[in-house]
Computed example of a mutant assay.
Amino acid sequence: MKVAAIQMCSGLDPEANLAALEPLLSAAAEQGARYALTPEVTTIFPESREQLRAVAAPFERHPQLARIAELARLHNMFVHVGSLPVPLADGRFANRSVLFGPDGAQAAFYDKIHLFDADIAGLDAYRESATYRAGERAVTAKLDDFTLGFSICYDMRFPRLYNSLANAGADLLAVPAAFTVPTGKAHWHVLLRARAIETGSYVIAAAQGGRHPNGRATYGHSLVIDPWGRVIAELEHDRPGVLVAELDPEAVREARRRVPALANAAEFAPPALQG
Protein backbone atom coordinates (compact mmCIF):
# COMPACT_ATOMS: atom_id res chain seq x y z
CA MET A 1 0.00 0.00 0.00
CA LYS A 2 1.23 3.47 -0.82
CA VAL A 3 0.82 6.15 1.87
CA ALA A 4 1.36 9.90 1.79
CA ALA A 5 2.43 12.37 4.46
CA ILE A 6 1.19 15.88 3.67
CA GLN A 7 3.40 18.71 4.95
CA MET A 8 1.75 22.12 5.40
CA CYS A 9 2.26 25.62 6.77
CA SER A 10 -1.22 26.23 8.17
CA GLY A 11 -2.39 29.70 9.16
CA LEU A 12 -5.37 31.34 10.82
CA ASP A 13 -7.91 31.10 7.99
CA PRO A 14 -9.59 27.66 7.73
CA GLU A 15 -10.69 28.20 4.13
CA ALA A 16 -7.20 29.26 3.05
CA ASN A 17 -5.75 26.18 4.75
CA LEU A 18 -8.28 23.98 2.97
CA ALA A 19 -7.39 25.61 -0.36
CA ALA A 20 -3.70 24.83 0.31
CA LEU A 21 -4.53 21.22 1.20
CA GLU A 22 -6.59 20.34 -1.87
CA PRO A 23 -3.75 20.30 -4.45
CA LEU A 24 -1.52 18.38 -2.03
CA LEU A 25 -4.15 15.66 -1.69
CA SER A 26 -4.52 15.60 -5.47
CA ALA A 27 -0.76 15.15 -5.82
CA ALA A 28 -0.82 12.28 -3.32
CA ALA A 29 -3.62 10.59 -5.25
CA GLU A 30 -1.79 11.05 -8.56
CA GLN A 31 1.22 9.24 -7.05
CA GLY A 32 -0.97 6.28 -6.11
CA ALA A 33 -1.44 6.89 -2.38
CA ARG A 34 -4.24 4.88 -0.82
CA TYR A 35 -3.93 6.75 2.51
CA ALA A 36 -2.93 10.38 3.15
CA LEU A 37 -2.14 11.92 6.54
CA THR A 38 -2.19 15.68 7.15
CA PRO A 39 -0.44 17.48 10.06
CA GLU A 40 -1.67 18.50 13.48
CA VAL A 41 -3.81 21.68 13.40
CA THR A 42 -4.45 21.26 9.68
CA THR A 43 -7.47 23.55 9.38
CA ILE A 44 -6.36 26.31 11.75
CA PHE A 45 -3.12 27.05 13.63
CA PRO A 46 -4.39 29.49 16.27
CA GLU A 47 -2.66 32.59 17.56
CA SER A 48 -4.64 32.66 20.82
CA ARG A 49 -7.53 30.94 22.57
CA GLU A 50 -9.79 33.88 21.73
CA GLN A 51 -8.94 33.68 18.04
CA LEU A 52 -9.57 29.93 18.13
CA ARG A 53 -13.00 30.43 19.70
CA ALA A 54 -13.90 32.93 16.98
CA VAL A 55 -13.31 30.54 14.08
CA ALA A 56 -13.45 26.91 15.31
CA ALA A 57 -16.55 25.21 13.91
CA PRO A 58 -18.70 22.53 15.61
CA PHE A 59 -17.79 18.96 14.74
CA GLU A 60 -21.20 18.16 13.31
CA ARG A 61 -21.56 19.67 9.80
CA HIS A 62 -18.04 21.08 10.01
CA PRO A 63 -17.53 22.92 6.69
CA GLN A 64 -13.88 22.01 6.08
CA LEU A 65 -14.40 18.39 7.13
CA ALA A 66 -17.36 18.12 4.78
CA ARG A 67 -15.15 19.19 1.88
CA ILE A 68 -12.35 16.82 2.93
CA ALA A 69 -14.88 13.97 2.98
CA GLU A 70 -15.73 14.87 -0.62
CA LEU A 71 -12.05 14.83 -1.55
CA ALA A 72 -11.60 11.37 0.02
CA ARG A 73 -14.47 10.11 -2.12
CA LEU A 74 -13.21 11.92 -5.23
CA HIS A 75 -9.73 10.39 -4.92
CA ASN A 76 -10.96 6.99 -3.65
CA MET A 77 -8.48 7.37 -0.80
CA PHE A 78 -8.38 7.24 2.99
CA VAL A 79 -7.83 10.83 4.14
CA HIS A 80 -6.70 11.32 7.72
CA VAL A 81 -6.98 14.88 9.03
CA GLY A 82 -4.10 15.00 11.51
CA SER A 83 -6.04 17.26 13.86
CA LEU A 84 -8.35 20.20 14.18
CA PRO A 85 -9.86 21.99 17.22
CA VAL A 86 -13.39 20.94 18.14
CA PRO A 87 -15.40 23.10 20.61
CA LEU A 88 -16.62 21.27 23.73
CA ALA A 89 -19.38 22.06 26.21
CA ASP A 90 -16.95 23.12 28.98
CA GLY A 91 -15.51 25.95 26.85
CA ARG A 92 -12.36 24.06 25.94
CA PHE A 93 -11.57 22.14 22.74
CA ALA A 94 -10.69 18.63 21.71
CA ASN A 95 -7.57 18.33 19.55
CA ARG A 96 -9.24 15.80 17.25
CA SER A 97 -7.88 13.57 14.52
CA VAL A 98 -10.43 12.37 11.93
CA LEU A 99 -10.19 9.55 9.37
CA PHE A 100 -12.39 9.41 6.27
CA GLY A 101 -12.73 6.29 4.16
CA PRO A 102 -12.51 6.13 0.36
CA ASP A 103 -16.32 6.38 0.28
CA GLY A 104 -16.15 9.75 2.07
CA ALA A 105 -17.71 8.39 5.27
CA GLN A 106 -16.13 9.16 8.61
CA ALA A 107 -14.32 5.98 9.68
CA ALA A 108 -12.89 6.96 13.10
CA PHE A 109 -11.75 9.87 15.24
CA TYR A 110 -9.29 10.29 18.10
CA ASP A 111 -8.84 13.05 20.69
CA LYS A 112 -5.23 13.78 21.72
CA ILE A 113 -4.54 12.14 25.09
CA HIS A 114 -1.28 13.76 26.25
CA LEU A 115 -1.31 17.55 26.72
CA PHE A 116 1.81 19.68 27.12
CA ASP A 117 1.75 21.48 30.48
CA ALA A 118 5.17 22.81 31.48
CA ASP A 119 7.06 25.48 33.39
CA ILE A 120 10.15 26.34 31.36
CA ALA A 121 12.96 28.41 32.86
CA GLY A 122 12.95 31.91 31.42
CA LEU A 123 9.62 31.44 29.67
CA ASP A 124 5.97 31.72 30.63
CA ALA A 125 4.23 28.57 31.78
CA TYR A 126 2.57 26.72 28.91
CA ARG A 127 -0.73 25.03 29.72
CA GLU A 128 -2.23 23.15 26.79
CA SER A 129 -4.85 21.81 29.21
CA ALA A 130 -6.20 25.35 29.71
CA THR A 131 -7.37 25.33 26.08
CA TYR A 132 -7.80 21.63 25.31
CA ARG A 133 -9.40 18.70 27.11
CA ALA A 134 -7.48 15.44 26.93
CA GLY A 135 -8.92 12.40 25.23
CA GLU A 136 -9.42 9.23 27.24
CA ARG A 137 -9.21 6.34 24.77
CA ALA A 138 -6.75 4.92 22.29
CA VAL A 139 -8.11 4.31 18.78
CA THR A 140 -7.35 1.97 15.87
CA ALA A 141 -8.99 1.63 12.45
CA LYS A 142 -8.66 -0.70 9.46
CA LEU A 143 -6.82 0.48 6.31
CA ASP A 144 -7.11 -2.35 3.82
CA ASP A 145 -4.42 -4.84 4.92
CA PHE A 146 -3.09 -2.56 7.67
CA THR A 147 -4.45 -1.47 11.05
CA LEU A 148 -3.87 2.19 11.83
CA GLY A 149 -3.01 3.42 15.31
CA PHE A 150 -3.86 7.05 16.10
CA SER A 151 -1.75 9.61 17.97
CA ILE A 152 -1.00 13.34 17.81
CA CYS A 153 2.33 15.15 18.29
CA TYR A 154 3.20 15.20 22.03
CA ASP A 155 1.77 11.69 22.33
CA MET A 156 4.99 10.45 20.70
CA ARG A 157 6.85 10.95 24.00
CA PHE A 158 4.72 8.30 25.73
CA PRO A 159 5.70 4.78 24.57
CA ARG A 160 2.92 3.08 26.53
CA LEU A 161 0.31 4.47 24.11
CA TYR A 162 2.09 2.95 21.10
CA ASN A 163 2.62 -0.36 22.90
CA SER A 164 -1.12 -0.43 23.60
CA LEU A 165 -1.93 0.33 19.95
CA ALA A 166 0.42 -2.37 18.66
CA ASN A 167 -0.97 -4.94 21.08
CA ALA A 168 -4.43 -4.05 19.77
CA GLY A 169 -3.28 -4.93 16.25
CA ALA A 170 -1.90 -1.63 14.91
CA ASP A 171 0.99 -2.03 12.46
CA LEU A 172 0.94 1.52 11.05
CA LEU A 173 1.24 4.36 13.57
CA ALA A 174 0.15 7.85 12.54
CA VAL A 175 1.86 10.86 14.15
CA PRO A 176 0.57 14.20 12.82
CA ALA A 177 2.55 16.99 14.46
CA ALA A 178 3.48 20.65 14.79
CA PHE A 179 6.94 20.31 16.35
CA THR A 180 8.96 23.38 17.25
CA VAL A 181 12.31 23.80 15.51
CA PRO A 182 14.57 23.27 18.60
CA THR A 183 12.76 20.12 19.76
CA GLY A 184 12.46 18.92 16.19
CA LYS A 185 16.21 19.11 15.62
CA ALA A 186 16.88 17.33 18.92
CA HIS A 187 14.13 14.72 19.20
CA TRP A 188 11.96 14.28 16.07
CA HIS A 189 13.84 11.49 14.31
CA VAL A 190 14.96 9.75 17.51
CA LEU A 191 11.49 9.51 19.06
CA LEU A 192 9.76 8.40 15.87
CA ARG A 193 12.35 5.75 15.09
CA ALA A 194 12.09 4.48 18.67
CA ARG A 195 8.30 4.12 18.39
CA ALA A 196 8.77 2.10 15.18
CA ILE A 197 11.50 -0.12 16.63
CA GLU A 198 9.85 -0.93 19.95
CA THR A 199 6.54 -1.93 18.32
CA GLY A 200 7.82 -3.39 15.04
CA SER A 201 5.46 -1.03 13.18
CA TYR A 202 5.55 1.46 10.34
CA VAL A 203 5.39 5.08 11.47
CA ILE A 204 4.08 7.90 9.29
CA ALA A 205 4.62 11.43 10.60
CA ALA A 206 3.07 14.41 8.79
CA ALA A 207 4.41 17.74 9.98
CA GLN A 208 3.70 21.42 9.96
CA GLY A 209 6.72 23.31 8.66
CA GLY A 210 7.97 26.86 8.24
CA ARG A 211 7.06 30.27 9.67
CA HIS A 212 3.32 30.53 10.40
CA PRO A 213 1.05 33.59 10.52
CA ASN A 214 0.71 33.09 14.29
CA GLY A 215 4.44 33.82 14.66
CA ARG A 216 5.52 30.25 15.41
CA ALA A 217 8.08 28.28 13.41
CA THR A 218 7.74 24.52 12.99
CA TYR A 219 10.29 21.90 12.00
CA GLY A 220 8.81 20.07 9.01
CA HIS A 221 10.76 16.93 7.99
CA SER A 222 7.75 14.65 7.48
CA LEU A 223 8.85 11.01 7.66
CA VAL A 224 7.94 7.42 6.94
CA ILE A 225 9.84 4.85 9.03
CA ASP A 226 9.84 1.08 8.55
CA PRO A 227 9.37 -1.51 11.34
CA TRP A 228 13.13 -1.96 11.65
CA GLY A 229 13.53 1.75 12.44
CA ARG A 230 14.88 2.85 9.06
CA VAL A 231 13.75 6.18 7.60
CA ILE A 232 12.50 5.11 4.17
CA ALA A 233 11.21 8.52 3.06
CA GLU A 234 11.66 12.09 4.29
CA LEU A 235 10.94 15.65 3.22
CA GLU A 236 14.28 17.13 4.21
CA HIS A 237 12.93 20.68 4.56
CA ASP A 238 10.16 22.71 6.20
CA ARG A 239 8.18 23.67 3.08
CA PRO A 240 4.74 22.33 2.04
CA GLY A 241 4.96 19.11 0.12
CA VAL A 242 3.87 15.51 -0.36
CA LEU A 243 5.88 12.47 0.74
CA VAL A 244 4.85 9.07 -0.68
CA ALA A 245 6.17 5.68 0.39
CA GLU A 246 5.15 2.08 -0.21
CA LEU A 247 4.49 -0.20 2.77
CA ASP A 248 4.82 -3.98 2.87
CA PRO A 249 2.84 -5.91 5.54
CA GLU A 250 5.50 -8.64 5.47
CA ALA A 251 8.05 -6.13 6.86
CA VAL A 252 5.97 -5.88 10.03
CA ARG A 253 5.75 -9.64 10.44
CA GLU A 254 9.50 -10.03 9.84
CA ALA A 255 10.48 -7.31 12.33
CA ARG A 256 8.24 -8.81 15.01
CA ARG A 257 9.63 -12.29 14.37
CA ARG A 258 13.23 -11.06 14.68
CA VAL A 259 12.58 -9.02 17.84
CA PRO A 260 9.41 -10.32 19.55
CA ALA A 261 9.31 -7.52 22.13
CA LEU A 262 5.51 -7.28 22.14
CA ALA A 263 5.18 -11.01 22.81
CA ASN A 264 7.98 -11.02 25.41
CA ALA A 265 6.69 -8.10 27.51
CA ALA A 266 6.26 -9.09 31.15
CA GLU A 267 4.15 -7.70 33.97
CA PHE A 268 6.06 -6.56 37.05
CA ALA A 269 5.53 -4.83 40.38
CA PRO A 270 6.36 -1.13 40.85
CA PRO A 271 9.95 -0.42 42.00
CA ALA A 272 10.66 -0.55 45.72
CA LEU A 273 13.56 1.32 47.31
CA GLN A 274 15.95 -1.12 48.99
CA GLY A 275 18.91 -0.63 51.26
Results as ranks from 00 to 15, higher is better:
residue 101 G to H: 13
residue 134 A to K: 11
residue 271 P to V: 10
residue 7 Q to S: 05
residue 145 D to F: 14
residue 217 A to L: 13
residue 172 L to K: 06
residue 5 A to T: 00
residue 19 A to Y: 10
residue 132 Y to E: 04
residue 8 M to Y: 05
residue 101 G to T: 08
residue 151 S to Q: 14
residue 151 S to I: 15
residue 248 D to Y: 11
residue 12 L to Y: 03
residue 210 G to P: 02
residue 1 M to G: 00
residue 156 M to F: 10
residue 183 T to E: 07
residue 162 Y to F: 15
residue 220 G to T: 04
residue 262 L to N: 02
residue 211 R to P: 01
residue 261 A to Q: 10
residue 210 G to N: 06
residue 218 T to S: 09
residue 4 A to K: 03
residue 4 A to W: 03
residue 93 F to C: 11
residue 170 A to V: 07
residue 245 A to I: 04
residue 102 P to R: 14
residue 146 F to M: 13
residue 192 L to D: 01
residue 35 Y to V: 01
residue 211 R to G: 04
residue 58 P to S: 12
residue 104 G to V: 04
residue 78 F to C: 04
residue 75 H to N: 09
residue 25 L to C: 00
residue 254 E to P: 01
residue 84 L to K: 08
residue 142 K to R: 15
residue 199 T to R: 13
residue 39 P to F: 14
residue 80 H to G: 00
residue 151 S to R: 15
residue 133 R to I: 12
residue 67 R to C: 02
residue 189 H to G: 01
residue 55 V to D: 03
residue 184 G to C: 08
residue 90 D to K: 12
residue 45 F to D: 03
residue 269 A to S: 07
residue 13 D to P: 00
residue 126 Y to W: 15
residue 83 S to C: 08
residue 26 S to V: 02
residue 59 F to L: 14
residue 250 E to Y: 04
residue 48 S to A: 06
residue 175 V to F: 13
residue 113 I to H: 04
residue 202 Y to I: 05
residue 254 E to V: 07
residue 232 I to F: 06
residue 222 S to W: 10
residue 191 L to E: 14
residue 34 R to F: 01
residue 203 V to Q: 08
residue 112 K to R: 13
residue 193 R to D: 03
residue 141 A to D: 08
residue 132 Y to M: 09
residue 153 C to R: 12
residue 136 E to Y: 11
residue 222 S to P: 00
residue 2 K to A: 05
residue 21 L to E: 04
residue 48 S to N: 03
residue 219 Y to K: 10
residue 202 Y to N: 05
residue 190 V to N: 11
residue 31 Q to V: 03
residue 158 F to D: 09
residue 144 D to A: 15
residue 44 I to M: 13
residue 252 V to K: 09
residue 75 H to S: 06
residue 195 R to A: 09
residue 86 V to Y: 11
residue 256 R to L: 12
residue 15 E to P: 01
residue 179 F to C: 05
residue 243 L to E: 00
residue 197 I to P: 00
residue 55 V to H: 10
residue 41 V to M: 11
residue 268 F to P: 02
residue 233 A to I: 03
residue 235 L to R: 10
residue 42 T to Y: 05
